Simulated scan of single mutants.
Amino acid sequence: MQPLRGIALKLIAVMCFIAMSSLVKAASDTVPPGESVFFRSFFALPVIIGWLAMRGDLGTGLRVASPMAHVWRGFIGTCAMGSMFAGLAFLPLPDVTALNYAMPLLTVVFAAMFLNERVGVFRIGAVILGLIGVLIVLAPRVTAFGGDTIRTMEAVGAIIVLLGATCGALAQIYIRKMVATEQVSAIVFWFTCTSIVMSLMTLPFGWVVPEWDITLMLIITGLVGGTGQICLTSAYRYADASLVAPFDYASMIFAILIGYFIFDEVPTGQMLFGAVLIMLAGIAIILRERHLGIQRDKARQAKLPYG
């Protein structure tokens, strides 16, 4: 294990995803979310293929045991991506980032529902704390529903982003089931292919021919997104998940800085307070998972025969 390398790769991945979101937001005034998903996926594909070739996984890593599992994972994951991209058109970048932090909380809930994972009082309490934070972030948006047009669209955007976080959590549950029989490289590759096909289905709903500078931004979105995906996957090869996972929350720092200096967005105190609660809940769950993992390892070692 190389923990510092793992942390560095995770931070690079976080910066890539925030940069990707920023580029999509900058293009959202003229480009519909389905078209942004296409650029994000299509131009990420060469990066991913190059990565697989460097690892020697281009042949064996693309074999699948259950094609339909990849189709469903791709469908749910694409819905998550499209919802986030749609939300970026209506909400400040820090708000979208904070609401996306609901995804690991919902993953815990769905793991108990669909994977029959035991969820103790500690994790239930952490999930409740995090969902309170989500409600605090949502409150000023949802209560504005039905007011002026801008505030109504912000409310719609908040609901769309939360729907995307829900889809993202469901995708994580699907991945947990798939890794028992599928290669991680295959999951990454076929998700990208599926999202390309699905995004093309939105073509009748108002795709545009963007100006050259917007086109360049969208191409960079794919390259940066693909790089972030590779760095994220690689980070977990060099360090334990419990060590690198909390660095996800560094994205809020980047989101606030980019939102303020690029989009002239000033986060409200209420949004920051809600985001802090969500982050504390997420970190608590990560630490609890680490503790349970250590206990399981000790139990397995105790059962090993000696002599």
Rank of each mutant, 00 (worst) to 15 (best):
Q301Y: 08
V119M: 12
G77S: 09
M178N: 06
G307W: 05
T221G: 05
Q301G: 01
V108F: 00
R290Q: 12
M201T: 13
V161D: 04
T78A: 14
I262A: 06
L272E: 06
S66E: 11
A19K: 00
F90G: 01
I160H: 02
S83K: 02
T143G: 03
R290S: 14
M20G: 03
M201C: 14
V24A: 15
L9T: 05
G146D: 06
A80T: 04
A281F: 10
Y260Q: 05
T181C: 07
A302C: 02
A239S: 10
L9V: 05
R73L: 06
P32L: 14
Y236H: 12
L135N: 04
M217P: 00
Y249Q: 01
P46V: 13
D248W: 07
D148C: 07
V24R: 02
I258G: 01
D264A: 14
V137L: 10
H70M: 02
W212R: 10
I214E: 07
W72D: 00
R63H: 09
F191R: 03
G164A: 12
I12G: 09
E117G: 03
V276C: 11
I278P: 01
A19R: 03
R5G: 07
I7M: 11
V142D: 06
L163R: 00
D57V: 03
R5D: 00
D297G: 09
M84L: 13
P305M: 13
A281V: 10
G147N: 07
M20V: 07
V184R: 13
A53G: 04
R141H: 13
F114T: 05
T192S: 12
T194G: 12
G56N: 13
M1G: 15
F273A: 15
L99E: 00
A255F: 10
A144I: 02
E211T: 13
L91N: 03
H70W: 01
L292D: 11
S36N: 08
I294N: 10
F38S: 02
V109P: 00
L58W: 13
M81C: 07
T143L: 13
G206V: 14
L277C: 13
F90Q: 11
K25S: 05
D148V: 11
V266Y: 07
V96Q: 07
R63A: 08
E265R: 06
T143H: 08
T97L: 08
A255M: 11
V24M: 13
P204A: 12
Q229A: 08
M54S: 12
S41N: 11
D95E: 14
T107F: 11
K303R: 14
S36G: 14
F261I: 10
I230T: 05
E35R: 04
S83E: 01
P3E: 13
S28Q: 05
A255G: 03
R5T: 14
L200Y: 07
G77K: 06
R288I: 00
L62A: 09
W190I: 04
